[in-house]
Simulated scan of single mutants.
Amino acid sequence: MKTFKNIFLTLLMISTLQSCIVSEKPNIDFFSDAGYDFKGAKFTSFNVPMLLAKPYIKKALREDGESEELVNLVKKISKIKILTVENGSKEMLNDYVRYLNNSHYEDWATIKHDGDNVNVRVKQNGDAIKNMLITVNSDKELVFVDVKGSFTAGDISKMINSFSDK
Rank of each mutant, 00 (worst) to 15 (best):
M1T: 01
T3N: 00
F4D: 08
K5L: 14
N6F: 03
F8G: 00
F8E: 02
L9G: 09
T10G: 06
L11F: 11
I14C: 03
Q18I: 03
S19I: 03
I21A: 02
S23A: 09
E24H: 13
D29P: 01
F30M: 00
S32D: 10
D33R: 04
D33F: 05
Y36F: 10
Y36N: 10
F38P: 02
F38L: 05
A41Y: 04
K42V: 14
K42I: 14
T44L: 12
V48E: 14
L51F: 10
L51G: 03
A53G: 00
K54D: 05
P55G: 01
Y56I: 14
I57W: 09
K58W: 11
K58M: 14
K59Y: 09
A60Q: 03
L61C: 06
R62Y: 00
R62H: 01
E69S: 13
E69K: 10
L70A: 11
V71Q: 13
N72E: 15
N72L: 11
K75Q: 14
K76W: 12
K76R: 08
S78W: 06
I82A: 07
I82L: 09
L83F: 02
N87T: 00
N87K: 07
S89Q: 00
E91R: 02
N94E: 13
Y96K: 00
R98I: 12
Y99A: 04
Y99S: 03
N101L: 13
N101Q: 13
N101D: 15
N102Q: 13
S103K: 05
H104A: 10
Y105R: 04
E106V: 11
D107N: 10
D107I: 03
A109R: 04
K112R: 09
D114Q: 13
D116R: 05
D116T: 07
V118F: 14
V120F: 13
R121V: 06
V122L: 13
V122G: 12
K123N: 15
Q124I: 11
N125V: 09
G126L: 10
D127M: 05
N131H: 14
N131W: 08
M132E: 10
T135R: 11
V136Y: 08
V136W: 03
K140E: 10
E141P: 07
E141H: 01
V143N: 02
F144T: 01
D146T: 04
D146E: 15
D146N: 12
V147A: 06
K148M: 06
G149T: 07
G149A: 12
T152L: 00
A153I: 05
G154F: 08
D155F: 08
I156E: 08
I156L: 06
S157D: 14
K158R: 10
M159I: 01
M159G: 10
N161C: 00
N161I: 01
N161W: 09
S164K: 07
D165E: 15
